[in-house]
């Protein structure tokens, strides 16, 4: 069973394996630093359908839940 970024609880890490989305969506994530092979740490997941905050390369990025659902992650390398 594949896990998405949204399945990770705050404090957990995962390595991006692939994206499930349009090329435009993929470019958007990559240019902000979320790329295949990167390890993401979930900093916060806001309640009531709120956004997810992840740390990548020492930087924090906020993204909506539906976006987080399209980031497929594996065990951290």
């Amino acid at each position: 069973m594949e896990r998405t970024l949204l399945d990770l609880d705050p404090g957990m890490c995962g390595t991006v394996t692939r994206f499930a989305g349009t090329p435009g969506f993929v470019r958007k994530l990559r240019t902000i630093g979320i790329r295949e092979g990167k390890t993401l740490t979930v900093v916060a997941r806001h309640p009531l359908g709120g956004p997810v905050v992840v740390e990548v390369n020492g930087r924090e990025v906020t993204l909506g839940r539906r976006m987080a659902q399209r980031v497929i992650v594996g065990e951290p390398a």
Binding site: K28, I32, G33, P51, V53, R59, E60, V61, T62, L63, G64, R65, R66, M67
Partner: peptide, 10 residues
């Protein structure tokens, strides 16, 4: 209504 997507600067 696209979702939020932004970088948090230090």
């Amino acid at each position: 209504c696209p979702e939020i997507f932004l970088e948090i600067p230090p």
